[in-house]
Design a binder for these strands. Structure first.
Lengths: 349, 349
DNA sequence: ATTAGCACTCAACGAGCTAGAGTGCTAACA
DNA sequence: TGTTAGCACTCTAGCTCGTTGAGTGCTAAT
């Protein structure tokens, strides 16, 4: 792959990204001054096609990049771009709202990213393994009702309304609450096991009557934490792109986006052991239905603990450089916010 | 409008609802045995068109119902239908999951309704005026951090993580919490005013340092309650109908559905002073973009207090009888669940 | 009042044609 | 030897045009 081929490939991909039309040799010769005739470029394009970087929808059409072409573009050709000052300003002002829970932050970040990129954005807390319980509280609400609250190091607050015997006194509930808190906080979700529950049981002393509802409440909260939270914004943006001008295609995509579990799993798989930005192009995605989408994701951390993943999904013909800039910027921004929110070192409490 | 005309109109609308194709006189004569020739029906159809119940897409096509036609159909012609045993069974089993917050219930009901009807479903708590605070609690989380929890009579639990001075002792926090709880619970959101806050301030005695963060937390929670919660499910279902086979049309609809505020307002407007089922057909909707959609909504109550609204949105050509049956059934089902959840008489506590 | 019959209308469909964008090859050129 | 002008060829998109058929409205017969 000589220098001239690179330049031509870059021109073609740049052009195709902005127009969504197959690019012909004439267009390349005209728009991007390489000082070459269309015939020469034609020859080079034939070579590039043979090498697998380009394909032809049909004989008399121009070329469009293949997944391999995009991959090469992303790895070697793409010009690095930065967000405009307006964009940065709009992000900053959007981030000014008061945020006091991680899920709020994720939602907001998601909205911002989809607005900036005009693609679909995702934000998730997929790594439940890392969740350490920070506090467990039982609060009396009214006679016969109490609220179990579980707070994790990741800033997630979950609660579950439970019924308890009306005879239980609020004071007793508070002491029970303290026992739960003492025994469970500091543990990861996976560390909660039968022996620990047994221990609590013994400490409380009294009958199952109190223990069970609370325990169920705690379990309920943990299940809520466990069910990976995924925020997805701007799915409808995709309908603006010619790739999705067919309703069937659009429906297929949107149906995919509804499957939060799937999205969560995809994000999780990608982000494992990788703290840079990961780009998955077309068929590089495991999911069949995402074969003509690309994914640009990265993880956000607090201290050196990976908390979750944010990313953008768009057509393979996406503005990679812009998306990359946006994702990188938001990663940094998120980092700051997360640290403000849950502290630099969420491991210890 | 004589009896024969009614029968013919009914046949046409029934047919159009199931096929989405303009209905011709021949079809009516053949499919629905009225003992009449197509010519007679043709004459009647011409009359019905003149009366405004039918329209013709173009001269040589069959007729389709106008909004007025649907209105007449819904009011007078429609056969009442019931859910099948399978549907009822599927609803019941879907409702078995443990639910302990109103928003969970709404979400679930929404999912069920969209699955049963194959249209888009909505569920909302639009009436914040009715929200009475049931409990206000401040729970210490860790040094310098506390959680403010607000629970309303409608079963909504909201929380807000706040920072407080590290010097504040947990015991003090609890007594402050009690003061807040005592002073605020039982009030509606609108009843909280400056004099009450002043009263709390005096009772606490100590400096603003403690009062302010907690108050901000409470305000934050109230704002969360205030921001009308709307659950919307199955928007993508609409892409299955020929009405939305055009991407622009589909996008327009989906963009509308993203506007939760708008939906919330629409629901609120409709449900005012009406506890039956309200059907809004086509242009009867105030929103321009909903001109070829119909809305079937109803309110759900606890005791005799209106809590919120549930409903279905679909193309004007929707299966009204089925949707009506589903909405009615879900209304009852919801009633039961709401009462289980927040008690028969949420007004007093 | 109903209906058979008929002329008429119009969208949908497909065939056939054209325009034009693009290609690959060949031969000439620097 | 690499580059380019020229040319024949290919193929889609878009157009026209005729055909088909579903449906209508009107008229005259029952």
């Amino acid at each position: 792959m000589d220098d001239r081929k690179k330049k031509i490939l870059q021109s073609i991909i740049d052009d195709y990204i902005s127009t969504a039309e197959p690019v012909g040799s004439r267009t390349v010769a005209r728009k991007h001054e390489l000082g070459l005739s269309s015939a020469t470029i034609r020859n080079e394009m034939a070579d590039l096609e043979e090498m697998g970087y380009l394909t032809q929808p049909h004989t008399s059409a121009g070329r469009i990049p293949s997944d391999k072409g995009y991959r090469f573009y992303v790895d070697q050709l793409m010009r690095q771009s930065e967000l405009t000052v307006e964009e940065i300003y709009s992000i900053k002002s959007a981030m000014e709202t008061k945020i006091n829970e991680l899920s709020q932050l994720l939602k907001q970040v998601s909205v911002i990213m989809s607005r900036i990129t005009k693609y679909t954005s995702m934000a998730a807390i997929p790594e439940r393994k890392n969740s350490v319980l920070k506090a467990v509280q039982v609060v009396p609400v009214e006679r016969g009702k109490a609220l179990v609250i579980v707070i994790t190091n990741a800033g997630t607050v979950k609660n579950s309304l439970i019924k308890i015997s009306e005879t239980v006194l609020p004071e007793f509930l508070i002491s029970v609450s303290n026992i739960f808190n003492e025994k469970l906080s500091g543990l990861t979700i996976e560390q909660i096991n039968l022996p620990i529950i047994r221990e609590i049981e013994i400490l409380i002393g009294s009958s199952q009557e109190v223990l069970m509802p609370i325990l169920n409440g705690v379990i309920d909260c943990i299940e809520q934490i466990d069910s990976a939270e995924v925020f997805l914004e701007g799915a409808i943006n995709m309908l603006n792109y010619p790739e999705f001008s067919d309703v069937d295609r659009a429906r297929e995509f949107l149906n995919l986006m509804v499957e939060k579990d799937l999205i969560s799993r995809v994000l999780k798989d990608i982000s494992v052991d990788n703290d840079g930005v990961v780009i998955k192009i077309g068929k590089e995605n495991d999911i069949e239905e995402m074969r003509d989408c690309s994914l640009v994701t990265t993880t956000y951390t607090a201290g050196n603990l990976v908390i979750g993943t944010i990313g953008i999904i768009g057509p393979t013909r996406m503005e990679y450089s812009k998306v990359l800039a946006a994702v990188n910027f938001m990663k940094k921004k998120m980092q700051e916010e997360v640290e403000k929110l849950i502290g630099k070192d969420p491991g210890r409490t």
